[in-house]
Design a protein around this nucleic acid. Structure first.
Lengths: 353, 353
DNA sequence: TTGTTAAATGCAAAGGTTTGCGGCAAAAAT
DNA sequence: ATTTTTGCCGCAAACCTTTGCATTTAACAA
């Protein structure tokens, strides 16, 4: 069913039909009604590719992320998709699986106008961003979120990584940690470096020595990460606090502590960036720095639409920094041994009835 | 940069260029090389809409799911997207947020050929599936996964819901439960009913009476669900076992047990369908029926591509039933009070040093 | 009635790609 | 030397929609 067939049905020209359907002022109310009714009756829907071709517009955005099976990113997509659906836009998803190569390949695929705009969160390998600069140079609206390319002039939606890392580290220090490890995801990502800087500055502010051994550069290889963490936690001079810059690393740490019988928080206190819904149900409950993932996605989409519609964005939207929240739970709390023992005894008593 | 401009650059006709780029046998090796090099040099990429229009093919599939911020669905998308990327396909994502209305609206949006095929997992409200039958009648390849429409003749990728529910319930019974509650997500979804049937049949097999009060119909309204669960668990004749048909309901139950001081597994044993990465780290660790979510997504995509490419699918792919796994953890294990108390005491002792 | 204006509709080009077929020249066959 | 074949390339239509502009029709004024 296309315009030509409709035009035959109605004995009107194709252009009249098209204009009627698009509610043009050139068409009389009567024929508009007639046309629209017939279109509905025959279940006519404009061919999107013909429209896109003619209008040079796709009503589609792309979201490029490292991985979708991740609470932060899936929530961000949720936000973006919800916003897009309200605007009658379509959302294409691409995963890079933390590989620069994939990111480049996807970028190339999107150079041809398939989408009206792109939201991206960088892979942890992405140091060189020329493939993204190329997109921007082609005039394709581009918005970064969470993991941003600092050297590209495009709107960036982030959270207060430095501040919250500082506060998270400070929290560990105030709870008695003196040897705090930092698990990093990437040494090229600005976000990772900001988090590291917050951590380092907190150490400095409290006159704690920073041990290079305590900074562990992790990556996408889960097994390798676990090995590194295990080595650290098994060493003689091991840390008494740990700051995980992403949730996956905190989970790995929990598993390792179970394995090698370290008690959290007694032997090791943990704070982690995380969007786990179950953080409070973990054993022990996990102290998290939680990012407003849904809002980040929504905001990024919103700014992207501004860019698409106006071809520019007001200064206040250029760099939006949302606040993340430190949610203090048991994994970082300075209970004394006595406290805990008492609690446990009480519990045991309760259980014995 | 388009074919016309390229043709000017090379002094060749548009059609020659096009054929050269598509490696047609009509074109000599020499000109092919010349054209392809120039195309790369000038960074030419075919306009996808023009190609789609001409070819009546979009190289795009749609994935329609209830919610993306959910471990099962995000893993399934991961599988589908990974497969699609290998095949050079694009993936559009649509969320229904468990609302039939949204599902219908999305279906309508996809009637016009925007995608070559659709993978869908039904919203929990979807009893009437005529909007999906309409898609199928339009000849759009359609594959169901997980939450399927039984009355539509299309490939379905599912897991052994009935069997695993039976086994999960049996496991609770064998661990001493006699009053087992069932938390359902929907009373229209076949998947939910299969799970319920497995539960009921297990009860019957072990001669347990089934109390209607113990079957709780939940939906997308988290607060309402929690209230229902809380009421059940606070009642005088409350259950001693609970089978959650989705992860969210198990989490809600954990939270409620914390609130009203019920001990899991002592007061209440829990088994849940779930794809939580952190199930083993919960307090207590959660016994789960875990579905191969990634594989389901990948398999669904794979069958969808068969359908797209061949317009039909071999009989063995029509209904693929994957196996889920019961992973027994502490939330359902029949520790005696003494056991637990001893353990706790020992722990207390350890902690006291 | 004729001329003027406004309202309604249709014509045709453009957007970029793909492909069947016709054309043309060079090579091969007669 | 003529015909046939083969190899390369270009023409033009088709995919379907949108829109500026021309055309037609109706209405109204003169």
């Amino acid at each position: 069913m296309n315009l030509k067939q409709l035009s035959k049905e109605l004995n009107l020209s194709i252009s009249t039909i098209s204009k009627a359907l698009r509610d043009s002022a050139e068409i009389s109310a009567a024929t508009k009604k007639k046309v629209q009714e017939k279109a509905k009756e025959l279940n006519y829907h404009a061919n999107p590719f013909a429209s896109n071709l003619r209008n040079q517009k796709s009503n589609t955005i792309a979201v490029i992320i490292p991985a979708i099976a991740n609470n932060f990113f899936s929530s961000a997509i949720n936000g973006a998709e919800s916003f897009a659906q309200e605007k009658d836009y379509h959302v294409l998803i691409y995963q890079t699986h933390e590989a620069l190569e994939k990111e480049i390949s996807v970028s190339k695929h999107l150079q041809n106008g398939r989408v009206d705009g792109i939201m991206i969160s960088l892979s942890s390998e992405t140091a060189d961003t020329s493939h993204l600069a190329a997109l921007k140079n082609k005039g394709i609206p581009l918005v970064f979120f969470d993991r941003v390319a600092e050297n590209i002039d495009a709107p960036k939606i982030t959270v207060d990584d430095y501040e919250s890392s500082y506060i998270g580290t400070e929290h560990l220090i105030k709870n008695g940690c003196t040897k705090i490890a930092f698990l990093s995801i990437s040494n090229v990502l600005s976000i990772s470096n900001n988090r590291k800087k917050g951590y380092l500055d907190a150490l400095k502010a409290y006159n704690l020595i920073q041990d290079e051994r305590f900074i562990v550069d992790c990556n996408y290889d889960e097994a390798a990460n676990k090995l590194k963490i295990k080595n650290l936690l098994s060493s003689t001079d091991k840390p008494d606090g740990l700051f995980a810059s992403v949730e996956e690393l905190a989970i790995a740490t929990y598993e390792i502590c179970n394995e090698i019988n370290l008690n959290i928080p007694l032997d090791l206190k943990i704070v982690s960036f995380s969007n786990l819904q179950t953080a409070s149900l973990l054993n022990p409950s996990l102290t998290t720095i939680t990012q407003p993932a849904y809002e980040i996605g929504r905001e990024a989409a919103s700014v992207l639409f501004q860019l698409i519609e106006n071809k520019e964005v007001d200064a206040t939207s250029e760099n939006i920094v949302l606040k993340s929240k430190l949610i203090i739970r048991d994994s970082s709390t300075a209970k004394t041994a006595n406290n805990i023992a008492t609690t446990k005894k009480e519990l045991a008593q309760t259980l014995l009835g």
